[in-house]
Design a protein around this nucleic acid. Structure first.
Lengths: 340, 340
DNA sequence: GACATCCACAAAAACGTTTATGTAAGATCA
DNA sequence: TGATCTTACATAAACGTTTTTGTGGATGTC
């Protein structure tokens, strides 16, 4: 049982054909009679033959490996979902993922990319853990690459990011449908696409419903719980306080929960809250459950790898695409009608 | 610039030596004069030569790839830290990680392992996302393997898991040092090592301090927020309620926070809480911050890969080890002296 | 000064595939 | 009926390394 791995030669010998024939039989190439093809296949199966991908990659220039470089694999809880989507898509395409983390460090990034290229990856997913603009490293020039949760101004690269504005509109639509008209926005302060896109979505949703934008209903803070709590407290202390809050993310929303509690406001009876992230450990754990917009991490991971695979295969629709993924609403219990 | 990748032949030609000499120069093998060695190295550097790992792996039987098999890469927020530790250790050893997710599905697991073996990984990290007993799949027989957050009864396999009992003792020691004597334990109900180890640690810590074990101070529930809340509520409703709670994990602790709030108890003035997980998004966000024991995910990832690398290198201390990693206490604001 | 030893390097085989090229037998065609 | 085309496979080169084996000269030994 524990002999050397069986190679293509052994299969050839056992089937009474040449190694060429075996190779063609298994890959579907060449011209062979269906009879031999099938016979060889079953012999190979019987011998438990599996090809050596190093050898086949060396010769064919296709390693069937996709490199995955990300900035921060660990600090966010999203990385796992992205990776899962990417890995599943890879498996479906008979590919496998080789990962490298850069810690947002250029030297590490270059070393990592180098390592991937030395292993002859067929292409690379260049991923960020939050939506941002990036500049593609020199080392990736000429390497098939798809951007994930990141974008550049280059139109020859495919990329996928969440539809930030759409996400905000969806959140707002939900609040508006519940009857709210005074809706506060607890925004983020960083200069990133999410900041601008979500604010734009907030304003657009108001405009669509003929509600005037009210400067006093918008605050910005760091997107963490404590600053969110402070911002929410300020907003709820206003004389004509909003009946609902749309929060930049779940951590700010958690701050809003705390502020509401401190202000003696019940959710959702006195105050409705919706936010973005659908970070389950928080959203499910909060009391009541937090209605939130999910960022499509799994889907972006899948899409990026599928896109890359398509481009590598030189498929018909292989022109690069830059897409924005829709973000679905996940209902829980933090939204109700406004108090009268 | 964008010519074919430069190979070892070009380096040989440029340096005026044979490819053999180049290979030896760069790998440190063979016997060459230091002069040639250095000269070849600088020529290689000048040409921007990087070896083709497929070719070198094919010939040398060492791919420099480590396979990483995990059950659930996405559902827990810990995966990222494990992966980060593993990846960093791999990079330090000039290796790279190839990952595969099994979704706890045997068929997927076998296909994934097969894929890794086809790519000639040098060894495999067989990881679980929570501490548990496993049975090593058939397909891994004969493949160098290290278990991560998992163990078997086989002594020929290295493994690393958290020291559950020690973690509980550390948590308890902290509460005891603060002066608490009536300490409740909100435990978990699953039949897993963490359940038994942490309970054992709780009992051991009490015994060490001459405190009698009180059945009424222990509850078990699912390890999530809502069940934790219910369990904590029951415990806090007791006539002689505990002054402190040790929680199985942060999610249960969050439930305890909610129960305390419902019962009108302030943390840490009326009730101290410590738990295990140090799940930062929760622990930092809770008000006040939750003092928690960190599980050594990053460290386990590092250790597993380093261990595997050592065993692959056939180092002197290469005898398999099964270790339990210590779990450090992360102080926040949820522990104070008991109310008098 | 004959022989073995060692040094510094080169030539060539090998790793396990894929692919380019070759070929023998049968089918097709004028 | 010979020439040409297909069909179905085989032979051999190639991928870019590492490793095994070879070699010519310098050095050492007695």
């Amino acid at each position: 049982m524990m002999s050397k791995r069986v190679g293509i030669r052994e299969v050839a010998a056992a089937a009474g054909v040449s190694v060429t024939t075996v190779s063609h039989s298994l890959s579907g190439g060449g011209q062979l009679s269906d009879a031999t093809r099938e016979r060889v296949k079953s012999v190979a199966e019987g011998l438990n033959y599996t090809p050596n991908r190093l050898a086949s990659g060396l010769r064919s220039k296709r390693s069937q490996i996709i490199g995955f470089v990300s900035d921060e694999i660990s600090t966010t809880p999203y990385a796992g979902r992205v990776l899962l989507g990417a890995q599943e898509a890879a498996a479906a395409n008979d590919q496998v993922l080789m990962i490298v983390n850069t810690n947002s460090n250029d030297r590490l990034e270059n070393r990592g990319i180098d390592a991937l290229l030395q292993h002859s990856v067929d292409g690379i997913i260049y991923a960020r853990m939050y939506h941002q603009a990036v500049q593609l490293p020199e080392a990736l020039a000429g390497v098939p690459t798809v951007l994930l949760d990141a974008y550049t101004d280059r139109l020859d690269l495919s990329s996928v990011v969440p539809d930030e504005e759409g996400a905000a509109r969806t959140a707002m639509a939900h609040l508006l449908a519940a009857g709210h008209r005074r809706i506060g926005y607890l925004g983020n302060i960083d200069d990133i696409p999410a900041t601008h896109g979500r604010l734009a979505g907030y304003r657009a949703a108001l405009a669509e419903h003929g509600i005037a934008f009210d400067e006093s209903l918008v605050t910005v803070s760091e997107s963490m719980t404590a600053p969110g709590r402070a911002a929410a407290s300020r907003m709820l202390a206003q004389p004509d306080r909003p009946t609902a809050l749309f929060c930049f993310n779940d951590r700010i929303a958690m701050g809003a929960y705390q502020a509401a509690q401190l202000a003696g406001l019940a959710i959702p009876n006195d105050l409705s809250i919706v936010s973005i992230d659908n970070f389950e450990v928080l959203a499910d754990a909060l009391l009541p459950g937090l209605t939130s917009i999910a960022l499509p991490h799994y889907e972006m991971g899948r899409w990026a790898v599928e896109r890359l695979a398509a481009e590598l295969a030189g498929e018909a629709d292989a022109a690069p695409q830059q897409i924005q993924m829709p973000c679905p609403l996940v209902l829980r219990q933090s939204v109700g009608p406004p108090p009268h």
